[in-house]
């Protein structure tokens, strides 16, 4: 398996976008935990075998979502228990698993996809206008800068004697203080970047060429198709046995 360790990393984002969309649809529509649970385990195994990511890395990245969904599940169970309602354990598990499912596949997508190729795929295959694609790309590039800036501004305010409340709701309310300096920087950066792009002929012609070639590779197509068939098989088998909320109608 060693030779395939970068298979998902090098895969055309087109296939990964399709896969993520299908997983999101399944996660949003199936309320029972069986398909989600199976796909969570399959996703982790596939990522471990065919990408540069390890189980540990993926699970660590989605730890907040895992904690959140376990928290949700416990709170709902406790409330139902205290109010003497039916526990509906499967549905509650389903809710938690769906959050974990979507977060795991999204993490694998984000961590194995080059943002430039992602934008190229959006423009090339999904016909997103280049202007929107590159706006997304530049905004994405500046996210870490904005995060650093937010921390500096918060610290600058604290050093001046402004105390941060421990109440998260008040923290959100108070964050408006940071918005003006953040906006001032964002607007300035936005103007400069559009100046840098437009003076380098961005938008000068209706068409543009691409330095990186993005093609639909046969091996990647077969790999993606196999996984889609696997998903379809799981849904079919689980549905036949009543383990999903999809109804299969026989002739």
């Amino acid at each position: 398996m060693k030779g395939n360790k970068d298979f998902i990393d090098n895969m055309n984002p087109f296939f990964k976008i399709i896969m993520l969309t299908i997983i999101t649809i399944i996660g949003s529509t199936d309320f029972l935990p069986f398909v989600s649970g199976t796909l969570i385990i399959s996703g982790l195994v596939i990522a471990h075998l065919f990408s540069s990511l390890s189980y540990k890395e993926v699970l660590y990245s989605v730890r907040a979502f895992i904690i959140m969904s376990v928290g949700f599940m416990n709170i709902i169970l406790l409330t139902r228990l205290l109010s003497n309602q039916d526990l509906e354990l499967l549905r509650i598990l389903g809710l938690g698993f769906r959050i974990i499912l979507i977060s795991i596949y999204s993490t694998i997508f984000v961590k194995t996809t080059d943002p430039t190729e992602f934008v190229m795929a959006l423009i090339k295959y999904f016909k997103v206008p280049a202007k929107f694609g590159y706006s997304f790309l530049t905004a994405y590039r500046f996210l870490p800068t904005f995060k650093d800036e937010m921390e500096i501004i918060k610290h600058a305010h604290q050093v001046r004697g402004i105390e941060e409340s421990r109440n998260p709701l008040i923290q959100v309310w108070n964050s408006k203080r940071y918005i003006i300096p953040m906006l001032a920087t964002a607007v300035r950066k936005g103007i400069r970047i559009s100046v840098a792009m437009e003076t380098r002929a961005f938008g000068k012609y209706e068409t543009r060429t691409y330095y990186r070639s993005l093609s639909l590779n046969k091996q990647e197509a077969i790999g993606s198709l196999l996984y889609l068939l696997y998903i379809a098989a799981i849904i079919t088998v689980f549905s036949i046995n009543g383990l999903t909320n999809f109804t299969l109608i026989y002739g």
Partner: peptide, 16 residues
């Protein structure tokens, strides 16, 4: 506006 040196240099060429 991009992530790597070569992508940055290629950006203007792509536009032209």
């Amino acid at each position: 506006c991009s992530f790597t040196v070569e992508d940055e240099i290629a950006f203007g060429l792509e536009n032209l």
